[in-house]
Design a binder for these strands. Structure first.
Lengths: 110, 110
DNA sequence: TCTCAAACTTACTAATGGTAAGTTAATTTT
DNA sequence: AAAATTAACTTACCATTAGTAAGTTTGAGA
């Protein structure tokens, strides 16, 4: 018998609508992905891009993106430099971001 | 001088990308909206539609939707019956849901 | 009238997030 | 070359949000 896992994300996040939206809806996740949409960025660049986010949460969200295959991390020359980049799977969220943007815009007339 | 409000949502949720995704990304919010997409529903119907959600959180999410103008509540005859319905603003999220669905599908090949 | 169901509400615990300070290695400045 | 600074984390602690379960109120049905 399997151990019942309740609401833990055992299945890949993209296995259904609920998993997906709960994942990309975690606090700050949306803007972190958004920030990486226009190309690879350093940790401090993402941080500077997102007013209000703390190092701790940014580290956590980036690690979650990596774990789920939406981003990769590259250590540059020294150990104090790293770069984050979206994978094709991460880049494919562009449509979702666009849809939210559209909603945000048309919202004023609704 | 205004009191600084930190990260509270003072502006309408649809005023920018960050506000919007943080709002629709709250736990269970996505599936609650999804559940209402195909027409008005009673409280217990939504609840039955979403395995795992508690009455407390469902109440909270529905009230947030109402507060932000994405849904309305109608008291039916007696006070023990109520019906929830998406407003045009809420219905307009259909595109966002579709985009997430598409991502979920193409995810397998990425 | 007695029981049951709908739609909450309350109380309490667990998990997640916010804030700030500390760490380590590599630059840059003096 | 020593001192200060920066990058990228990590740790610790408190606050907020979520999960779980039991209780409340009104109305409908047997």
């Amino acid at each position: 018998m399997d151990t019942p896992e309740k609401h833990e994300l055992v299945a890949p996040i993209c296995s259904n609508f609920h998993n997906t939206i709960e994942f990309i809806g975690r606090r700050w996740m949306g803007v972190v992905v958004y920030s990486l949409m226009d190309g690879p960025k350093r940790f401090h660049e993402i941080s500077a891009n997102i007013p209000g986010i703390s190092d701790r949460l940014l580290t956590e969200r980036l690690n979650e993106l990596i774990k789920e295959g939406l981003a990769t991390k590259t250590q540059l020359v020294s150990s104090t430099k790293s770069e984050y980049k979206l994978t094709p799977k991460g880049l494919a969220l562009k449509e979702v971001i666009a849809a939210i943007h559209n909603w945000t815009d048309q919202c004023r007339t609704l």
